[in-house]
Simulated scan of single mutants.
Amino acid sequence: MGPLRWGIMAAGKISYDMATASAALSPKEHFIAAIAARSLESAREFADEFKIPKAYGSYEELVQDPEIDVCYIGTLNPFHLELGKLALSHGKHVLCEKPLGMNVRETKELIDYAREKGLFLMEGIWSRFFPTYMRLREEIDKGSIGDVLQVFVSFGVPISEVDRIKKKEFGGGSVLDIGIYCVQLAQYVFGGDNPVKIISGGHLNENLVDESTSTTLLYTNGRTATLVTHTKCQMPNEACIIGTKGTLKLECPFWCPTHLTLADGKTHEFPLPPGKATKFFRSMGLSYEMSEVRRCINAGMLESPTVSHKETLRIAEIMQSIRKAVDVVYPQDII
């Protein structure tokens, strides 16, 4: 079987990192066939840097290319639904940056459309494909810390003046941008169970999007997750998973970790694939999710069991509940 032929939609920083990470993978398995951006000049510059054979000045042109198998959507949040449906409508599988949609309605709409078309769709929650997360799962499943009762996780970085964070029209706010990593971790640890209660509070900026939140997720059997997000200060950015027999700790940054401390106090390292510098921290790890996409598509699967459609919907529901509690309303919420 030949390489999976990728088309990248958008030429921004995260797309740059995706292309950079692809260099860690075998060209016999992955090939970036085309890049599209809102301007042909940007697409051509991107293509020149990464030696991509085709550059398009519109997304419509890219999805019409018969030599593309899967589209990676690296645009701002409000465009995920539109571009996801555009790619799927032209027979392309889709890997879409998180969050998959601006709210539950958009998320469900895109998932339903992918199922209708019989095509693979995955939300890019790349954290779950890190070897560190896989080891974390093994430790939990074998009971090395007993019954897991508590998760503590924080994600805070001083990014409040970044446009994609502070502006409502860009889908800004801490929950959709960084809070999703906290939510997905709690769900990962607790096996995707639905919280029975969600308690949230937070602070909004002048554009009425959340600059910080504090959330407690209550689950059955005495289980709790405590999640904190902030866009105006640096936080520990680590995660502690606490059970009746000990603690597991994902070292900072917990969303792309290379170190896991086990219950015996020993820290294990899981090095990233080598590669050149990326725009965001540890983005060479994006290669892990690219490998998962290829595995699933080659197996004829329409979703990844690690980031299933059910799980993506549940995460969207939790984030929407948090936003509702702190009074963040996007135009997409008003129909």
Rank of each mutant, 00 (worst) to 15 (best):
V175M: 11
I334P: 00
D163T: 12
A186M: 06
H30Q: 11
K266R: 12
E60A: 07
K51H: 15
L25C: 11
L95F: 08
Y113G: 07
G192H: 10
E67Y: 11
P305K: 10
N237S: 13
H90Q: 07
R137W: 09
G91S: 11
G202A: 14
K92F: 03
L62I: 14
F281N: 14
K51Y: 09
E97Q: 11
A225Y: 04
A239Y: 08
V326I: 13
G7R: 14
Q150Y: 08
G191E: 02
Q64N: 12
A55T: 12
A277T: 11
G179T: 03
L218E: 14
K85G: 00
N221R: 15
I32E: 02
P195A: 13
K92L: 02
D327I: 00
N77K: 10
D17K: 12
H90T: 02
G192R: 03
P271T: 10
L217D: 08
A186G: 02
I242C: 15
L40Q: 07
G285I: 09
H30F: 05
S15N: 11
M102I: 03
V209S: 03
K245Q: 05
M301F: 09
E138D: 14
E97W: 00
V326T: 03
V70L: 12
E60Y: 10
T213N: 04
S22F: 07
G179Y: 02
V307F: 00
A10W: 03
Y16F: 02
H93I: 07
G156E: 05
L121I: 08
A186W: 05
K28C: 10
I322F: 09
I73P: 03
E49F: 07
H230R: 15
W126F: 14
S304V: 05
M301I: 06
V328A: 02
E61I: 01
L119E: 06
P236Q: 15
T261H: 00
S174Y: 06
A186V: 08
L248H: 03
V153H: 06
D327W: 01
G173M: 07
I178F: 05
F190E: 00
D147R: 11
M122R: 03
R38D: 04
I35P: 09
L76F: 14
G179H: 12
S308K: 00
Q234S: 09
K108N: 05
M235E: 13
Q150H: 07
E269H: 06
G201R: 11
K51D: 15
A186I: 10
C71K: 02
L149K: 15
S283Q: 10
H80P: 12
I140T: 08
T258K: 13
A299S: 15
V183G: 06
P236H: 14
S22Q: 11
V70W: 02
Y188N: 08
E29N: 10
L81G: 10
G146C: 02
E317S: 08
K168P: 05
P78I: 14
G201V: 08
T231M: 05
P3L: 12
Q320R: 15
